[in-house]
Nucleic acid binder design. Sequence first.
DNA 1: TATGAATGAGCCTTCATTCAT
DNA 2: GATGAATGAAGGCTCATTCAT
Lengths: 195, 195, 195, 195
Amino acid sequence: MRDPDKPRQIIDAAIRVFARAGYYHSRVSDIAREAGIASGTIYLYFKTKDEILVTLFREKMADWVDHVRREISAEPDAVAKIRRLVRLHFTVLERNPDLAEVVQVELRQGHKFFRGASAHEVSAYFALIASVLEEGIEARQIREDLPVKVATKMLFGAMDQLATSWVLGKRAYRLTDAADAVAVIFLKGVCADDV
Amino acid sequence: MRDPDKPRQIIDAAIRVFARAGYYHSRVSDIAREAGIASGTIYLYFKTKDEILVTLFREKMADWVDHVRREISAEPDAVAKIRRLVRLHFTVLERNPDLAEVVQVELRQGHKFFRGASAHEVSAYFALIASVLEEGIEARQIREDLPVKVATKMLFGAMDQLATSWVLGKRAYRLTDAADAVAVIFLKGVCADDV
Amino acid sequence: MRDPDKPRQIIDAAIRVFARAGYYHSRVSDIAREAGIASGTIYLYFKTKDEILVTLFREKMADWVDHVRREISAEPDAVAKIRRLVRLHFTVLERNPDLAEVVQVELRQGHKFFRGASAHEVSAYFALIASVLEEGIEARQIREDLPVKVATKMLFGAMDQLATSWVLGKRAYRLTDAADAVAVIFLKGVCADDV
Amino acid sequence: MRDPDKPRQIIDAAIRVFARAGYYHSRVSDIAREAGIASGTIYLYFKTKDEILVTLFREKMADWVDHVRREISAEPDAVAKIRRLVRLHFTVLERNPDLAEVVQVELRQGHKFFRGASAHEVSAYFALIASVLEEGIEARQIREDLPVKVATKMLFGAMDQLATSWVLGKRAYRLTDAADAVAVIFLKGVCADDV
DNA sequence: TATGAATGAGCCTTCATTCAT
DNA sequence: GATGAATGAAGGCTCATTCAT
């Protein structure tokens, strides 16, 4: 009888509230008001305020990785997949400004993002990127002596920083406009010379 | 405000404390104890707890940029400068584990890092990187149609992510080992084809 | 209010729950679960959580006094009645460990036990004891200058403390083993010298 | 530099507040207001609200036992000592109405009085009473087959119930008026027949 | 200047009670 | 009548900041 949609409503409210004030400056009662429920109700679905943040990130990140994985699978080769992945990364953020704010800015706290509960979901994204690079090496599109782990982190870091700068710059321009440039530079950096 | 060395002592204590527990979970009294002074004394040198964080970052970042600028100026050209810059970026973090923890993990909070008070110092680092890229374009080492701002953020993001992963991985390997790979991939990505 | 047995079920559940965790640390939902009903149902039979406690005590105490009154009436004289009463007091507790825990330990709170709603039932027990003492005085078994009220409270207090110590000692021995000793000492204390 | 008298002030304020409203219905801020300090200050001296109650009882009970022990040591024999002890028990309560209220009514909660932290101090009082009884047996004033533990609990229980009734009866009469009667009945109950 | 005891605003969480189903 | 999800008041505790010494 417990409303199966409440957790999502609470998380979505939390995203909006965190985007506005940051996790530590948001009160549980703020989230409740934003969700249109009483603050006690939140505790029927989440054990602590912290759990909201962790769940928020886990679910959004899991969705994200699923989405990206599905989308790029249609692409013919590693190079096309990387291009698509970069574009998707930026598109998702551009379409969800509150989520972008939370993920790029508010979630970078201490032990809550890469570390701790979310580590698994972040790893999945890293693994996805790495698998595409491996595929490219296999197909000789990407140079075979590429240190894949390093390159994976570089690409993620590059996209992440573009996104962060865009959020901090109050999203004054279109993030996706940078997508091709990022893909081009990265691909040029990792591809085999004769490609 | 007599003792001109106190602020530095406090900031160094704060770095150690923040590295241990994170900004929000560190108490002003923790910093005081770590610095060997009374908590009230901190307020003779800093108006608020927040100001400690902001000052900490400003000063360390300013030192950092100065240091890098000075070091790379000795290098003959843009390519060599980038190589040096990447290595320096990693070396500084590797030599200051507590600072690394704070900068890579704890400082990524809300409105306190890139945004707000620290924005100026981060910009200076970005400007430094951009100026090297411009220099490379000038010298035709780097392709002239490079979107410099995007490339700057990419390099910073790439280094930053490598550093973050290293910190979160409990510094289990040598960060500087990745320096050359990062420089090579980035430079290959941005350099003119005939170089 | 259809089901005439529900209140008793609820009270019996409450006894078990209070015995386990104490009144203030027991939740209404705990009692509901123990009774196998929904927490809202409790409010069809009791106005507040407090009322459960008060009713619990009133009913159990009224039963108790009735029981004791009936049992001792069969005894031939005051001395025999006191002996029987002491034994009954201990027997009832020994046979109902949860009730003993609640009555001896949990119910001794503030304005809820002797004071307030339960005062009447406690008074009835006191009156019963006093009436036996009066009977003994009448029959010259008990010395006629005995301050009956004081002696009544003494006997109750003595039994009560024995019971409390027994409960707190985790009922490690048989409470009824002390019954005769208590009766003997008390009776020797109050009886006429020539008896 | 921490005020060594503050804990006592807080405890004394707590006694007044608990006497008025009971432990569970008293707020920490009530105690603070009564003590003329800020509520946060209480936490410089006590870890939790519970600790106030436990400390309160421990200290008062320890004082009590010391006081009684010292006073009765002057008496020539066991019988005189019991008489004195009963009178002291009642005198202390009569002179400290708030303490009486707290000890007799508020402190009888769950696991906080005889059980738990206060057990040791209560035991000391029991041991003191028992030692007097033993002394009386030694001197053949008290019958040698007396079950000392039972008699000890009986005396304590008797005094305790007199005190409780007196507190609940709003102290409408003089408790000490009952002291002699209690001592007489108890002593008659435990003394050797030929005394 | 340095101290650290004192302050009190602030917030997460609990849980008795209500009420729509 | 029975349910249990929802409510929201209440309060223990923390800790940044102040200030008398």
